[in-house]
């Protein structure tokens, strides 16, 4: 028996919108502490890791650990039928090949049930090692999205370099080059507007902008984004989901041949 009631249903809608273009199918792993998802994109260049902890739900019941394979495109179609103010409940029964999404309007005058077929997904689960990163940049998520969008109009890859001067995003393409430098800026009215650079050692890495732009679909989930880099690891682009968990995107770098 599985029953999860999320008053802020729009959160689940936003989570799906942030990952559905990167990953087609994924196993949702439910346990008593919450649910998680880990999946690579089809070309095995990026990985998404989602965690939503049980504390964030108004009601959370999961009698035994269970994994449900879902097509994220189909799940997104169903969740789009929920209003932004709706309460969403996810229900499942042991051994069933379907999951039910229930949408309740805030005034309880409209209640909808959507039953979705589950699928068997043979997915690899990867061990992500704990790591000390050379540099961690925390910045407004909207600013990061703007930079990725702007640079993608010039080139295909972005070089992200962190030094004690700041963080530099660079690209080059047929029409020219672009460099955007952000300096640490903590003297802002609101903490979410700050750019904070923690640097143990300078680092410079190259990434495909196509993936970075896909990650920025998670911007509505959080005012800030954290970018963690070490030369021998995929970059981690993390959007925290207030009091509930996170969506993390891992992206393997491009290397000089």
């Amino acid at each position: 028996m599985l029953e999860l009631r999320l008053v802020q249903g729009s959160l689940l809608k936003k989570v799906l919108e942030s990952i559905k273009d990167l990953v087609n199918d994924a196993n949702f792993d439910f346990s008593s502490s919450g649910f998680s998802l880990q999946s690579m994109d089809s070309s095995h260049v990026a990985l998404v890791a989602l965690l939503l902890k049980s504390e964030g739900f108004e009601h959370y019941r999961c009698d035994r650990n269970t994994s449900m394979g879902m097509n994220l495109g189909n799940m997104s179609k169903m969740l789009k039928c929920a209003g932004n103010d709706d309460i969403i409940t996810i229900k499942g029964d042991d051994g069933s090949d379907t999951v039910t999404f229930m949408f309740e309007s805030p005034t309880q005058d409209k209640i909808a049930d959507f039953e979705m077929k589950l699928m068997d997904i043979d997915s690899e689960h990867l061990g992500i090692p704990e790591a000390e990163y050379h540099a961690i940049v925390k910045m407004p998520s909207a600013e990061f999205a703007r930079i990725c969008k702007d640079l993608a109009s010039i080139g295909d890859t972005v070089v992200i370099s962190v030094t004690k001067e700041g963080v530099k995003f660079s690209t080059r393409g047929d029409i020219g080059t672009a460099n955007i430098v952000l300096r640490q800026n903590t003297t802002v009215d609101k903490p979410e507007d700050a750019t904070v650079i923690e640097m143990n050692e300078p680092v410079s890495m190259t990434f495909a902008l196509r993936y970075m732009n896909s990650f920025t679909k998670a911007t509505p989930l959080s005012n800030t984004v954290t970018i963690s880099m070490s030369p021998d690891l995929p970059v981690v682009v993390e959007y925290k989901i207030a009091e509930m968990g996170y969506v993390r995107f891992y992206l393997a770098p491009k290397m000089e041949e």
């Binding site: 260049v45 990867l126 995929p234 891992y250 290397m255 000089e256």
Partner: peptide
């Protein structure tokens, strides 16, 4: 010319 690395180059199967 840059070579796109894969996630599996860094993270291993559990």
């Amino acid at each position: 010319p840059c070579l796109q690395r894969k996630i599996l180059d860094y993270f291993k199967d559990d």
